[in-house]
């Protein structure tokens, strides 16, 4: 166990070094989400859930960052490393399968948190709002990376090569961009749609992030201020949904993930 943790940290550091050396990845992971944040924040007018439309959107942007910094990044990384036999080599070396996966997850978490910090600086600079509940944001990030890391592992198993990854990620990407309650709260959607959206993993992550940023209840469209305890209590259903998704993602990954290129 201790060895696994040491291995994961070591592999995560190497991952981050490599991200720094690969311009395409660097762009996809770092700039793309920022551009999207800038784009989204120009749409809204008026008020949503007790805050300005702009603040509402910006505090929901981590849901989109998750799609790029974590999901797409990891599908690409898993797929290309499998095809280049890097995964095979790593598995034949000292680290365990769990450590290899955890290493990739850890580096994705670092990138994701870095983006959230950038976003926090932006929100503070232009809106004067400081994050209210940082631990909740970190937990949201960690759970989000776990869920989408596992889903990415499963999707990479269905992706024959790195070029195809651009296509296989699309369904998930589209669902995330449409369903994530970035521009408006999930519960303003008509009944069944709201239920479905609420059960998708991106929704609880966005809601926890926004609640953490603003210290108010953004699990519903009410947006009323909550005490620290109140925020955590309100977050429990979301945490529950994410834990269920971790199990689902884990099963999918176990079923679909491939360590080696398929033959024939």
């Amino acid at each position: 166990m201790k060895t696994d943790v040491l291995h994961a940290v070591r592999l995560a550091r190497i991952d981050l070094t490599l991200v720094g050396r690969n311009t395409t990845v660097l762009f996809n992971v770092m700039l793309m989400p920022i551009l999207i944040a800038a784009l989204y924040s120009t749409f809204p007018v008026g008020e949503t859930a007790g805050v300005s439309g702009e603040v509402f959107v910006l505090t929901g942007v981590p849901g989109l960052m998750l799609a790029f910094a974590v999901f797409i990044n990891l599908v690409n990384a898993f797929t290309s490393r499998r095809e280049e036999l890097v995964l095979k080599r790593l598995r034949g070396g000292q680290p365990s399968a769990a450590a290899v996966m955890a290493g990739s997850g850890l580096s994705a978490l670092v990138l994701f948190l870095f983006q959230v910090v950038l976003l926090g600086i932006w929100v503070y600079r232009f809106e004067g709002i400081l994050p209210a509940n940082v631990p909740m944001m970190v937990l949201a990030a960690a759970l989000g990376v776990a869920v989408f890391g596992l889903i990415a592992a499963a999707f990479s198993g269905m992706t024959p090569n790195a070029e195809m990854a651009q296509i296989t990620v699309l369904p998930v990407l589209l669902v995330m961009m449409v369903a994530a309650p970035v521009a408006f709260p999930a519960d303003v959607l008509p009944g069944p749609l709201a239920v479905v959206t609420g059960l998708l993993p991106v929704t609880p992550i966005v809601e926890m992030m926004r609640t953490g940023f603003l210290g108010a209840d953004h699990f519903t469209s009410g947006g009323e201020k909550l005490s620290m305890v109140g925020q955590w209590v309100a977050a429990l259903p979301s945490i529950g949904i994410l834990l269920v998704w971790i199990v689902i993602g884990g099963l999918l990954a176990r079923w679909l993930f491939r360590w080696e290129p398929r033959h024939g």
Binding site: H7, I14, L18, E84, L85, R89, G93
Partner: peptide, 29 residues
């Protein structure tokens, strides 16, 4: 294990690759 073919992280230098392996081995005792 020396596999029949490759599987290196191409963007790492030779020394970094050995360092990584050395570290992983150290971590494993």
């Amino acid at each position: 294990i020396m596999l029949q073919e490759g599987g290196f992280l191409g963007d790492l230098t030779v020394a970094e690759t050995v360092d990584l392996w050395k570290g992983l081995s150290q971590d494993a005792g």
